[in-house]
């Protein structure tokens, strides 16, 4: 199964509105260059965990939430780093995926939605995100990721 990168977002500090990019650089075992977690000032950075290095969510989920609840959760508001299209992210749990040419990430955890996001963006989305809230991953090997890049399981 191959998907595509259709959104790239980072934030410099915890709670900052995400900034949209055309590309980003993944750093092995650090995260995304310039992002809050890579800079160790993210919300969880007082207790750094590898799973916070990079996060993903499906664009399809954002569409489903709109169809089901009428709530528009934009890619930017979802606060995930990489928005994907054309792939079932939950199927990657426990596996390594390639993003773009070289970057490899290990899918450590299914993301668990939190109230913090609801309060930050003032939208009721926690319940509708349950079970499809994306992935929390560790960067195994670095590389540049660009919009349109492929996402696929490493065999």
């Amino acid at each position: 199964m191959t998907g595509r990168v259709c959104g790239i977002y980072t934030a410099e500090v915890a709670a900052q509105e995400m900034m949209e990019g055309q590309e980003c650089r993944l750093l092995a075992n650090v995260g995304i260059e310039g992002d809050r977690y890579a800079k160790r000032i993210g919300r969880w950075s007082d207790r750094p965990k590898t799973e916070h290095q990079i996060s993903f969510i499906e664009l399809e989920v954002l569409h489903q939430i709109y169809d089901e609840t009428g709530v528009v959760l934009t890619p930017r508001e979802s606060r995930r780093n990489i928005i994907t299209y054309g792939v079932r992210l939950n199927d990657f749990l426990g596996q390594t995926i390639r993003v773009g040419e070289n970057a490899l990430v290990y899918v450590e955890k299914l993301n668990h939605p939190c109230k913090y996001l609801e309060r930050l963006i003032d939208k009721q989305v926690m319940t509708s995100l349950l079970g499809r809230s994306g992935l929390n991953c560790q960067v195994i090997s670095g590389g540049i990721v660009r919009l349109g890049d492929r996402i696929e399981r490493v065999l």
Binding site: E12, V13, R119
Partner: peptide, 9 residues
Amino acid sequence: MAVRLLMKV
């Protein structure tokens, strides 16, 4: 309630 996101200034 209101959006609580931070803006860079």
